[in-house]
Simulated assay, not measured.
Amino acid sequence: MSFGGLAVPIQAQTLSNLNLAQAPHRFTYTAVVPVAGASQADLVLRARAWARQVTPASLVPVSTSESDTEVLQTTGLCPFAYEQENLSGKTFMATLRYNATLSLRAGRYKYEVTGFVFQFPGAGWAPTQEVPVESFFNGNAKPLNAAGFRYNMTMRTCYKEIADEVLARLQASMRQPIGKAGTE
């Protein structure tokens, strides 16, 4: 499996302490992260820079203000390649889509990343398939044989690695000063 970027340790949350949200049973990562000395305007610039990296060109991140909090919502895409053992190691492409909400205040931000969906491109007459990631964890994707079980394990591994990378990149971007706020 391969996808761009390097994985780095995640400070706030990894799959091992993942929250499976009760209502829709969707994986949700959330944390409040302090950023000492960062103004709200600086955090907004950092969040916008991160959103530009992960948001597809066809979508625009949405910014809103709520009392003393700036909120940025976006949809991120992370393409990746995986091998399927029962097809002689043939490599396939897919994309992991997710939704992110960042709530920004001076000195801290809160993130919520959820709505993870695998997008498998269609071929010929077959349309693109979208499968919630949770299907590979909750028993909804029932393997018919050993190859199907290995496929489920491959998709779980892809998700774990990509989700860790998404969170690591988000946190790294939010730690990285952009320059003077208000000069964008």
Results as ranks from 00 to 15, higher is better:
Met1Trp: 04
Ala7Cys: 07
Ala7Phe: 05
Val8Asn: 02
Ile10Thr: 15
Gln11Thr: 10
Leu15Tyr: 13
Asn17His: 06
Asn19Arg: 08
Asn19Trp: 00
Ala23Ile: 09
Pro24Cys: 01
Tyr29Glu: 02
Pro34Met: 10
Gly37Pro: 10
Ser39Thr: 15
Ser39Asn: 06
Val44Lys: 08
Leu45Tyr: 15
Leu45Lys: 15
Arg46His: 12
Arg48Glu: 12
Arg48Lys: 15
Ala49Glu: 06
Trp50Gln: 05
Pro56Trp: 05
Leu59Lys: 15
Val60Met: 07
Ser63Phe: 06
Ser65Asn: 03
Ser65Gly: 00
Glu66Gly: 00
Glu66Cys: 01
Ser67His: 13
Asp68Trp: 00
Val71Asn: 04
Gln73Tyr: 07
Gly76Ser: 03
Cys78His: 05
Ala81Leu: 14
Glu83Asp: 11
Glu85Met: 10
Thr91Gly: 01
Thr91Glu: 04
Phe92Leu: 12
Met93Pro: 00
Ala94Glu: 04
Arg97Trp: 08
Arg97Gln: 14
Arg97Thr: 14
Ala106Glu: 15
Ala106Phe: 13
Arg108Gly: 00
Tyr109Arg: 05
Val113Arg: 01
Thr114Gly: 00
Gly115Gln: 14
Val117Thr: 08
Phe118Thr: 08
Pro121Glu: 08
Gly122Pro: 04
Ala123Pro: 00
Ser135Val: 04
Phe136Cys: 14
Asn138Ile: 10
Asn145Arg: 07
Gly148His: 09
Arg150Gln: 13
Arg150Phe: 12
Tyr151Lys: 06
Met155Ser: 09
Lys160Phe: 01
Ile162Cys: 11
Asp164Ala: 15
Glu165Trp: 11
Gln171Lys: 02
Gln171His: 05
Met174Lys: 07
Ile178Cys: 05
Gly179Cys: 10
Gly182Gln: 14
Thr183Gln: 11
